[in-house]
C-alpha cells in the first residue's frame, strides 16, 4: 500500500475520485434540502426557530398536526387530489391516442404536429393564465375543479403524447400485424396485445401527469379562489406563517410527489431514455 501511494497517481484512480465526488455532489444537491425539510418538519417549533439547528429529527409531530387541523387545509388537499386525478385521466385520454397515431400512422404534417406539441410548452404560464382567467369567468369555468384540471391537462398533454409515442414505438408493428392475421381487428389487437404491453408505461405517464398537476401553483392560484388546491392554498397562507409551519407545508407538498415518482421511477427512466428520439 505504501508503495502504491508513493507511486505517481494512476489516472484511473483520479478518474474514480472525480466520479465519486460528482456522485456525492449530485446526491447532496437533491438529498440535502429534502433532508433539512424532513428534519425541520419533524422537530418542535422551538427547535426549528432556535440556533444552532438540529440535524437529527425529534419526531415531533406538532407542526404536522397543526397543519392538518388548519382551516381549509383538508379541503385544499382534497381539491388537489381531485384536480390531479382529473388531469391524469384527461391527459391520458387525449395523449395516448395521439401518441398511438404519431407512432403508427403516416400523415401530412406529422413532424410539424410533433413540434407544435412541444411548442405549447414554450408559452410561459403567466402569459396564458390571465387570458384564461378572463375566458373562464365568461364561460363560468372559473374557480371550478374541472376548469383548473383543463389547464393542467394542457400542461400535461405534451408529455403524455411524447411519452406514449415512444412507448408505442417500442412495440414492434409486427406484434399487432401478427394479431391481425390471427383473427383480431385493430381494436381487439390493441386490447389483447398492445395494451397489456404498454400498461406499465401508461401508468407511469399518468402518474407523471398527476405530479405535474399536483405541483402546479401559478394557474391554481390565479384560477381558483374558493376551491384552492394545496399549492395555491399554501402559497396564500405560508407567506405569513411561522418558519416551522412553512417547513411542514413544504413537507406535505413534497412527500406525495416523491412517493409517486419513486413508485414509477423505473418507467420514467425508461421513457426518458427513448423519449428524446
Amino acid at each position: 500500500m505504501t508503495m502504491a501511494s508513493s507511486a505517481p497517481q494512476d489516472p484511473r484512480r483520479t478518474g474514480r475520485y472525480v466520479y465519486a465526488t460528482a456522485v456525492f455532489l449530485l446526491c447532496a444537491w437533491v438529498l440535502g434540502p429534502l433532508y433539512l425539510l424532513f428534519v425541520n418538519t419533524l422537530s418542535s417549533p422551538e427547535a426549528v426557530n432556535s440556533f444552532p439547528k438540529a440535524y437529527v429529527p425529534e419526531f415531533n409531530f406538532e407542526s404536522i398536526e397543526f397543519f392538518m387541523e388548519f382551516a381549509g387545509m383538508t379541503s385544499a388537499l382534497w381539491n388537489s387530489i381531485k384536480v390531479a386525478t382529473l388531469t391524469m385521466i384527461m391527459s391520458i385520454l387525449v395523449g395516448a391516442p395521439a401518441g398511438y397515431a404519431l407512432s403508427r400512422f403516416e400523415f401530412k404534417g406529422k413532424e410539424t404536429f410533433r413540434i407544435l406539441i412541444l411548442l405549447t410548452r414554450a408559452f410561459p404560464l403567466p402569459l396564458l393564465a390571465l387570458p384564461l382567467a378572463v375566458l373562464f369567468i365568461r364561460t363560468g369555468l372559473d374557480d371550478t375543479i374541472f376548469g383548473l384540471a383543463l389547464v393542467h391537462t394542457t400542461l400535461a398533454v405534451p408529455f403524455a403524447v411524447l411519452i406514449t409515442f415512444s412507448l408505442f414505438s417500442g412495440i414492434p408493428m409486427e406484434l399487432e400485424e401478427a394479431a391481425w392475421t390471427l383473427g383480431c381487428n385493430r381494436l381487439t389487437a390493441f386490447i389483447k396485445v398492445v395494451l397489456p404491453l404498454i400498461l406499465p408505461g401508461i401508468t407511469a405517464s399518468a402518474i407523471f401527469a398527476f405530479v405535474i398537476s399536483w405541483n402546479e401553483v401559478f394557474a391554481a392560484a390565479v384560477l381558483t379562489i374558493e376551491n384552492r388546491t394545496l399549492t395555491a392554498f399554501l402559497l396564500q397562507n405560508l407567506d405569513t406563517s411561522a418558519l416551522h409551519l412553512k417547513f411542514a407545508g413544504g413537507f406535505i407538498l413534497v412527500v406525495p410527489a416523491l412517493i409517486f415518482i419513486f413508485a414509477v421511477r423505473k418507467y420514467l427512466f425508461a421513457m426518458w431514455g427513448i423519449a428524446n428520439r
Binding site: E174, W180, T181, L182, G183
Partner: peptide
C-alpha cells in the same frame, strides 16, 4: 378483406411472439 378473414397465417421475420403470453397462450391465441 381484412387479414383475419382471408384464411391465412403468417410467420414474421422477427418472429412476433407475444412477449406477455406464454408459449401455450401464443399458440392458442388465434
Amino acid at each position: 378483406l381484412p387479414p383475419k378473414d382471408r384464411g391465412i397465417a403468417m410467420v414474421f421475420q422477427n418472429y412476433a411472439v407475444f412477449p406477455h403470453l406464454t408459449v401455450f397462450e401464443n399458440i392458442a391465441f388465434g
